[in-house]
């Protein structure tokens, strides 16, 4: 169940949209923010809010890179693997992240803190290699900076987004 305030906010968002469906991505994102990932329960709630079938919502939920239909850790690190980052050491950086997090790309650390995912171009190509953590873009991420960023994440501290 979602809190009353969130339900009310989402109902307002749906009501203000030109058609209910236009609000679908906002609704999915907010429910994901609440649950951490888009659970089956969240999917059903979204369908009800939007006046759609769960299948129609599933069609959307499985389409987007940043909607998680499987459990993720408290923080998700998206590591760009597109051409500009690739040319500036994106692949070694991803291997390094796997090593220091002790996970394979696509999985979550044992303490459920961090999920490591590859992603398509983040539009931070001038500051390659790039990561997106939460809603923040990180650029020029050297292996040393990656260690520092993860240490600070684990301590729940704010991190610097550029070198």
């Amino acid at each position: 169940m979602i809190p009353e305030q969130l339900a009310y906010d989402l109902q307002q968002r749906v009501k203000d949209a030109v058609t209910h469906r236009e609000a679908a991505i906002d609704v999915l994102k907010e429910l994901q923010r609440h649950y951490g990932w888009l659970t089956d329960e969240a999917l059903a709630e979204a369908a009800q809010l939007l006046g759609l079938s769960t299948l129609q919502v599933e069609e959307l939920a499985t389409f987007y890179e940043m909607i998680y239909r499987r459990p993720v850790g408290r923080t998700v690190i998206h590591a760009c693997d597109s051409i500009s980052c690739w040319s500036m050491g994106g692949e070694p950086l991803l291997r390094h992240l796997e090593k220091i997090l002790e996970v394979e790309t696509g999985s979550t650390t044992a303490d459920n803190a961090i999920t490591l995912l590859p992603c398509s171009c983040l539009g931070n190509c001038g500051d390659a290699p790039a990561l997106m953590i939460g809603e923040h873009l990180y650029g020029r991420v050297t292996p040393e900076r990656a260690v520092a960023i993860i240490e600070q994440l684990r301590l729940g501290m704010p991190t610097k987004t550029t070198s």
Partner: peptide, 21 residues
């Protein structure tokens, strides 16, 4: 309208579908 990450949404007719939900 803030999207959720998919390259094809830049194609104008796909973008229109995305915006319509």
């Amino acid at each position: 309208h803030q999207s959720a990450g998919r390259y094809i949404c830049g194609e104008e007719t796909a973008l229109i579908n995305a915006l319509e939900g």
